[in-house]
Design a binder for these strands. Structure first.
Lengths: 213, 213, 213, 213
DNA sequence: TATGAATGAGCTTTCATTCAT
DNA sequence: GATGAATGAAAGCTCATTCAT
């Protein structure tokens, strides 16, 4: 749980009660959904009075946004972290496959540490325009450009077929997402050989978009 | 809309009011979600008294299930229709790529005609165990076996690499789903060259899993 | 059941549907009470459309009154039947104890044949002014005078102590009612030696109010 | 009313609103019955929002049970209070008639102070299994054994005829109940000479079951 | 800052009653 | 007469939010 709280915690300090509220809200909402979770339930599990929730989050939806927004930011963080971009362009990765491997491993660990948060994000994205906004902004301003840059770079390098970037993205992203959803949400209890799965997936992806094919 | 009602209508007749109720429920729920749509709203839009809804669907959730269950069945219908299986095994399709093409085209048209229904299915799947049950049953009993059969067949024929079926499915299905979601839900207003998109997608998929690579 | 319908049937003929409605209403209301029984349930059990009930009884309460009013009349019928009064005054019964015995036996059989109807009467008496009216009228106009007449007669004859009639009634009536309620409603399944019970009860009553004591 | 609230109040404190709710519920339900009294009416009379009722009693039926259960307990309280039993066996009462007199006086006062509560109990007993349960438990575990003990004691002492206890109880209890119902519910407005009535009633009862007869 | 009783609008659901067929 | 779809008022209940303490 501490990892997950790292994802959420901003620079300012939170009171212990506020942390309890967030934890409880995350547990309950990820289990039962936003509309099936009442503030009184959250308060009870957090060991806090119902009014206390509204001292910290003036609205139930505010509480949801406070949970979900940092996830959106963090999910895509490495993609636009200066460090990452630098690594790519300073050829820390010899090939697109290497980059993909590093990227997937990194995001895999993040997902593993934040399953409940990601569940909430996926489930509620459809219903809350506020969240959709945040998501779209991050995607178009950060993720998409970073992706494009990287793809252009490795195309130039001869690692990739000359497909439109959009097409490549539409292959790569759902494949990764699909794997993660299956891995963590649909069949979390299956025995997975994660490393093998990832290698295989990359093999197939590169078979589809790599230059050699 | 008439197409969509075909997806829902059973053999027996519905009263005009019942059809109106279904239509209104579909519109509203697909726009705003199940929990943000009240039965009084549905009644108002359907031009019907609120009690009339409960004469036909004894529960609000019953109404949802009546909307969503036929979609689950129809989404996967061609996969387990005798006709389809026959076609596959009587070599109506010379290659897995051909099969894929026919399949995607067919499902693309279905999706196009049923966007609101599919939106509802995707959005509510997470929260209603009844729906999850129906989905799981159809998937494990129908879709998955049909897929396996087809994959085995074309593997034997030498069309496909010798990857585990599960891995192939985990590549192919999310890729197709991802495309459709982008096409019909995330960016429905973008100008799409559907035929080209599909061809490209198949190219990449076959690059990843086809025998030639 | 045929006996019970005798209690209800007036001179005019009823259609078979109407009889079915009455039967079903009696069963359901005596089991679950008036407010827990819906007209649609009654219709279903009667094998009749809901509207048909309202063709015969313009109101749900009308139906109840149609069930309960004849019971009130019949419960007390023997008390004011000319025949009964005649018997009393022509000394068909040698003693008040004899009269009591005949009376209790008679009412016992009536109760036995009409348990559901009596249950309904007892349960709903409290809530429906219409029923209370009917009950009060019958009691003050018929039962009470007949009782007084008989008591005066047997007092004069020296069978009874010189207690106020009201006091005697307040001993006799609740004792009989209490026995019947215990016998038919509270503990209907206990094995009863009815004849012995009745004899004992009369013994005690006469011990309390009879002249010998 | 304060007396009545004593019957209901548990050791813990109630908020003033909760007291108002109870009072209003008792008034309305005893006048019109449970099913004819809506929670909104209760709220209005109590000067409280409807939601407030459900904060204190999670169900309308819970409210009813909260009203009725303490009555059941208190109605029979003296019968199984150690003090009462002691009194009986330490011959505080010289005869069964004395005991009866003390007992009736005591219960008469209780009834007088709790008419609405008792009305509710009598009226709703028929329809609510929860209440029936509570009633049966108290009767078989407390009232019945205490009665038996007392009857055996005074039989041995030669005060009572050798009738079966059950028969005695079936005479005594309905007679007392019948008197109280007539006195407080059926004809509360008649001018009563209570002391005389009670004396007379005891006379008759003892005439019926006493040893001298 | 924290509490939790109180609020009241809004929800789903029930059901006696009506009426066109 | 009989039907049963339709009605709509009213019910019990939920819950995010407020506010005096």
């Amino acid at each position: 749980m501490s990892d997950m709280m790292d994802t959420l915690r901003n620079e300012e300090n939170m009171t212990p009660k506020q942390i309890e509220i967030l934890k409880s809200a995350i547990e309950l909402i990820s289990e039962k959904g936003y509309y099936n979770t009442s503030t009184s339930e959250i308060a009870k599990r957090a060991g806090v009075a119902e009014g206390t929730i509204f001292r910290h989050y003036s609205t139930k939806k505010d509480l949801l946004v406070a949970i979900v927004t940092p996830v959106i930011t963090n999910i895509s963080a490495p993609l636009f972290a200066t460090k990452f971009v630098d690594q790519v362009f300073h050829e820390d990765y010899n090939s697109f496959a290497d980059l993909l491997h590093a990227f997937i491993n990194n995001r895999f660990e993040f997902a593993q540490a934040n399953v409940p948060l990601i569940k909430i994000l996926l489930q509620e994205l459809a219903f809350h325009p506020e969240i959709q906004m945040a998501y779209k902004r991050v995607f178009t301003e950060k993720v998409y450009p970073a992706f494009n840059q990287a793809l252009d770079f490795y195309k130039q390098k001869g690692d990739l077929q000359n497909l439109p970037n959009d097409t490549i993205i539409r292959i790569v992203v759902p494949t990764i997402l699909g794997f993660m959803m299956t891995r963590f949400i649909l069949q979390p209890d299956k025995e997975w050989d994660d490393e093998a799965e990832i290698r295989q997936m990359i093999g197939v992806i590169m078979g589809g978009i790599g230059a050699g094919s």
